[in-house]
């Protein structure tokens, strides 16, 4: 639990407000005013206050989101504010719609045919699900790291440069590649072999390469769908350390099956569950420490204590 204490300067802060209130649209009036994203300081400003767990100025705001695959509903009425420059974990049993929810945040889910999405997601107060929004532009701002490392069969350099190139990056590409690899904690291992194939790396290195590839586009939000599930504990540890580093400049949302991982790395945790109707819903959302130590919902408690299904 030492990590948790590091993450939270004030571990005694207790949320007395019923969890539902955070998702009540009327409650958070502050975010309805338009903002200029670049003028805002990114660090520390959004730490939860002692009294409430209200998220001021969320980076991502999911409002009443429902998703259907064909006629089958997978996610039902999820509302969730994601704090800026923090790590938010999505946990829940298999099939509860974590990936679906995550992939809606960068409009990736609509690549699947037969998908229907209702509700709204806002990034910095700008709605994504309205006419005229180009999903390609959305994905440039919200990067994604996938469950299985999926580098292209190109060189390490070209993997990292891929996104920047298609986005018409004008600056010094060598410098960008170096920076991204450094940020992804991979530079020292590959700096002498940037022309080597990305596929020649180990699984953990490949995943860090994929993170570098996502960072090189200079996104604001990084979505990670079980980024460590194909990795061994040491590689996992490296990615977790890396996430902590990245959280100083990016907003990170991570889906994980590993509750220790959620507890170790995240500031906030959302617990989702699909009940008899098989529609995934948000059960509880709050600061990670609180959710894991004193969950307010019985089903959350059952899940995190392993007394589940």
């Amino acid at each position: 639990m030492t990590q948790l204490q590091q993450t939270y300067p004030d571990p005694l802060s207790v949320n007395e407000v019923p969890i539902q209130q955070h998702f009540n649209k009327g409650e958070v009036t502050e975010s309805s005013t338009p903002r200029e994203p670049n003028l805002r300081p990114r660090m520390k400003s959004d730490r939860p206050s002692k009294e409430t767990d209200e998220i001021k100025d969320p980076a991502v705001r999911i409002q009443d989101l429902s998703v259907w695959y064909g006629s089958k509903q997978a996610v039902g009425n999820v509302s969730l504010d994601i704090a800026r420059n923090q790590i938010t974990a999505l946990i829940g049993p298999s099939g509860c719609g974590k990936s679906t929810l995550l992939r809606c945040i960068n409009r990736m889910n609509e690549l699947i045919s037969g998908v229907r999405i209702e509700g709204q997601i806002e990034i910095d107060g700008e709605p994504l699900y309205i006419d005229g929004v180009d999903p390609v532009e959305v994905r440039r701002v919200i990067g994604m790291v996938f469950q299985r490392p999926n580098p292209f069969a190109k060189s390490i350099y070209d993997n990292v440069a891929f996104g920047a190139r298609i986005n018409g990056y004008q600056g010094d590409m060598d410098e960008l590649v170096r920076q991204s690899l450094e940020q992804a904690a991979l530079w020292d291992e590959v700096k002498d072999d940037l022309k080597g194939s990305g596929l020649a790396l180990s699984g953990g290195q490949q995943q860090r390469l994929c993170i570098a590839r996502a960072i090189a586009v200079q996104p604001e939000v990084i979505l990670m769908d079980e980024p460590c599930s194909a990795l061994d504990p040491i590689a996992t540890q490296r990615i977790e350390d890396l996430m902590q580093e990245l959280a100083t400049s990016y907003t990170i949302v991570i889906v994980t099956h590993n509750m220790q991982q959620a507890a170790r790395v995240s500031n906030r945790t959302a617990f989702m569950l699909a009940q008899e109707d098989l529609v995934g819903r948000l059960v509880e959302y709050g600061q990670t420490e609180q959710l894991f130590t004193s969950p307010s919902n019985k089903r959350t408690e059952d899940y995190i204590t392993g007394r589940f299904g």
Binding site: E137, F146, N167, A214
Partner: peptide, 27 residues
Amino acid sequence: VPESLREAAYGVGATKFEVITRVTFPS
């Protein structure tokens, strides 16, 4: 060509045409 590669390209903001010409076709 594995879907995961297309997703990787879409994920960094590639258009469908870019995905095809730079990832799917070369693969």
